[in-house]
Simulated scan of single mutants.
Amino acid sequence: MGWLSNRALGISLVVLLVTSSLLAVVLGYLGLVVYSALMTGTPIVGILLDMTVPYLPVVAVLLVLVVLSGIWFGWSLLQRASIPKNDRLASVAGRAEREVPLLGALGLSESLSPPEPTPEERAERTLAELKRQYVDGEIDEREFERRVDRLVSNDSLEEARAARERRAVLEGESGRT
């Protein structure tokens, strides 16, 4: 992640506070001028027209900045929120992204999908399923032992393959230097 994305929540909050404060000051000043015109009996239309011309662009820019920074702050807050991750939410988000291509840029389906289990987690789940099948009587002791042996040998093969790949990478790096 980049520097900006790591600090997006704080930056967006500061921008939101600054722009909304400036907008409040400008609108407060305009309100004060209108109030003073009303209290002195001065025709308000002339004063408003004189003030609207220079301040209308400032108000418009500040209003746009407040809205955009509010959206940015809300999005940054949602990204940091602890949203449950499961396949159903990811499939709904994927369907919405297919229907509305603009949503695809947000990457909701990836952020809602659960992480892939590690090989150790997969092996633990498989072993737990084998134990359940053995306890429930779905498989006999011989079949249980055969499947556990196969599971252990697959883990050994994966470990050997990973060690071989590590050695190849290290040898490739030492060959370059």
Rank of each mutant, 00 (worst) to 15 (best):
S5K: 15
R7D: 05
L9D: 10
G10F: 10
I11L: 15
L16D: 08
V18G: 09
V18S: 13
T19R: 06
S21R: 05
L22T: 05
G28V: 09
Y29R: 08
Y29V: 08
L30C: 06
G31P: 05
V33K: 07
Y35W: 12
L38M: 14
L38G: 14
M39K: 14
M39H: 14
M39I: 00
M39L: 13
T40H: 12
P43N: 12
P43C: 06
V45T: 12
V45M: 12
M51T: 09
T52N: 12
P54K: 03
V58N: 09
V58D: 11
A60E: 04
A60T: 14
V67M: 11
V67H: 02
G70P: 00
I71W: 13
F73W: 12
L78N: 01
L78Q: 06
Q79I: 11
R80H: 00
I83D: 01
P84D: 00
R88W: 12
A93E: 10
R95N: 09
A96K: 10
A96W: 15
R98D: 15
G104D: 00
G104I: 00
G104R: 04
L106E: 00
L106T: 07
G107H: 07
G107N: 01
L108S: 01
E110I: 07
E110C: 04
S113D: 11
P114H: 04
P114A: 14
E116N: 10
P119Y: 02
P119A: 11
E121M: 09
E121H: 06
R122Q: 10
E124M: 12
R125V: 13
T126W: 01
L130F: 15
L130K: 01
L130S: 09
R132C: 01
Y134D: 08
Y134I: 00
Y134N: 08
V135G: 00
D136S: 08
E138C: 03
I139Y: 04
R142M: 02
F144D: 04
D149N: 05
L151A: 07
V152Q: 06
S153N: 14
D155E: 15
D155F: 10
D155T: 14
S156A: 15
L157S: 08
A160V: 05
R161M: 10
A162G: 01
E165Y: 05
E165A: 14
R166Q: 11
R167W: 07
V169G: 02
L170H: 03
E171P: 01
G172H: 02
E173Q: 13
R176F: 03
